[in-house]
Nucleic acid binder design. Sequence first.
DNA 1: AGTTTATATAACTAGAAAGTAATATACAAG
DNA 2: CTTGTATATTACTTTCTAGTTATATAAACT
Lengths: 110, 110
Amino acid sequence: MNRSDPLSLTFLALADSTRRTILEQLATGDASVVEITSAFTLTQPAVTKHLIVLERAGLISRTRDGQRRPARFRIEGLVPVDEWLHRARTEWSDRLDFHLAQSIEASPGN
Amino acid sequence: MNRSDPLSLTFLALADSTRRTILEQLATGDASVVEITSAFTLTQPAVTKHLIVLERAGLISRTRDGQRRPARFRIEGLVPVDEWLHRARTEWSDRLDFHLAQSIEASPGN
DNA sequence: AGTTTATATAACTAGAAAGTAATATACAAG
DNA sequence: CTTGTATATTACTTTCTAGTTATATAAACT
């Protein structure tokens, strides 16, 4: 298997503190590439690349404002991650509980 | 910034469908390297490497059973991700709502 | 039209990640 | 103590990622 499926792309986009910080900044409002760049010790092309990663992950959209192309946080992009986590916490922990119970039943003294 | 902080390590570990499948398998109970390997078309060293990535991310622990070193799913390892997501969904969406409200207030007709 | 400003693209480098085959280690069992 | 089995490690290759500088494109402004 590889890491080019949508969920992997989203997890991958989040696996970088620079990109998470960009999302945090975007939560305060849309921001242009120049504005985002000024928050880091990074060059403009580096920021543009991060935005491409975030966009492919569905975590931002790009708009148009004159010659600027501001980025906008897409909170819906987090839904698949949220759903995966929810499954892990519910279904899986059920199963974990089940197997734990089995072990206890099978243990000496039962 | 880089991607060696704990949260990035966890997101990175999850950004691979093979590793997510391993976690899913472990949710049905502990499994040895050989058992995990048999579920994939991968060599044993490749699986060992994936387990190391999952362990560094805090998502599994390794136990000892004779010559086997079964892996065990650590559901607690998901807590930091869960917290990050929760912050994003609550605080951030509050701020997003706030800025949206500001835009509406500032718009012509108000 | 020419200049400035914002963003994107190209070409490149350095380092990390995922995989392999081959080998070493460690424990179990005759 | 030798053999078999489970896992780890080493050495290597390939691909991907993040960053750079330099340049191209595109819109805005005189």
